[in-house]
Amino acid sequence: MTSTTVLRRFNRTYTQRIGALDESFLGLGMPLASARLLFEIGTTQPVTVQELRARLGLDSGYVSRLLRGLESRRLVALSPDPADRRRRVAALTAEGARLLEDLDERSDDLAARLLEPLSERQRARLADALATADLLVRAATIAFEVVDPASPDARLAMGHYFAELDRRFEGGFDPGPLTEADLATMRPPGGTFVLARSDGEVVACGGVQALGDGVGEVKRMWVDDGWRGAGLGARMLRRLEDDAAALGHSVVRLDTNATLTDAIALYERSGYAAVERYNDNPYAQRWFEKPLTAPAASARSPRG
């Protein structure tokens, strides 16, 4: 049985048993889509309509219709965003908050009923399997996006990268000031900066800068701790290599610290060979290089 067949069968089984096909999800008098939107608003309110669309992967017209339905039941209130009055912010009303509590209770009861016939060992197996499935399905739907390295999301991702190095390096890590000159190296024509998003949230990043003579360098590659083991680091590295080749680089280099053993293992698995020191980075202890294959004519542009 192929993985595609298994996934489709699981989807049919699961959607039927949790009531996703019912017009009244869990007897709440609304379909699953409306209940899910209510949950998303209540989890991180206030939240902009734009954020809801990105998080759920829904088009603006459908989200607007769902919101109108929740508004008509006085479950959600919409107002202008104080930070940008062109945007709308959604928040639960008191009645909406009560319904969300009811939704949580009914969801817990349904989960308990589904698990009740299973032994403790079977429940543990199911929990592990579902956690793995959740991570891998989300990994399969990651969206990569080229952004300006000076953008707020890019700076946020690099902040996570610097914080991780500070935690892991003996003696900490001081990146120094992030200057415009530093950021400019990760812009075309010789560089790029890429974010990976899941449900609108930034979960990985990486950049490429030119070293000259057809040589590019991978910089500031970071993957959120919650995504370890999902292969996202390898995918981000391949994306950066593809973009480096599209920018005209024939070789890509990178440096790392000896404490980052997981990163070193990734580089070695990905075909990088150890080379002599090529820079003056005081935190670098290992240096690697890999020849690149020119991208096919149909390959995506590093600009998007």
Rank of each mutant, 00 (worst) to 15 (best):
T2E: 13
T4W: 10
V6I: 13
L7K: 10
R8A: 14
N11Y: 07
T13N: 13
T15S: 14
R17C: 08
A20K: 13
L26F: 09
A35D: 09
R36Y: 06
L37P: 01
F39K: 13
T44A: 13
Q45K: 06
P46D: 09
P46C: 08
R53W: 01
R55K: 14
G61I: 11
Y62E: 11
V63E: 11
V63L: 11
S72D: 15
R74F: 02
L75H: 10
P80R: 03
R88H: 12
T93V: 02
L103I: 06
D104S: 09
L114A: 06
L115Q: 10
P117G: 07
D128T: 11
A129L: 13
T132I: 05
D134A: 12
V147A: 00
D148C: 04
P149C: 04
P152F: 01
A157K: 00
E164L: 11
E164D: 15
E170R: 10
D174R: 11
P177T: 12
A184Y: 02
M186R: 05
P189D: 10
V194K: 00
L195T: 00
V203W: 00
G207C: 05
D213K: 15
V218I: 14
D224Q: 08
D225L: 09
G226R: 15
G226S: 15
G229R: 04
A230Y: 08
R235W: 02
M236W: 07
M236V: 11
R238I: 01
A244I: 04
L247E: 07
V251P: 01
A263Q: 07
I264E: 12
A265L: 07
A265R: 15
L266N: 08
Y267K: 07
R269M: 03
Y272W: 09
E276G: 15
R277F: 04
N281Q: 10
N281R: 05
W287G: 06
F288T: 08
K290R: 15
L292T: 10
A299P: 02
A299D: 14
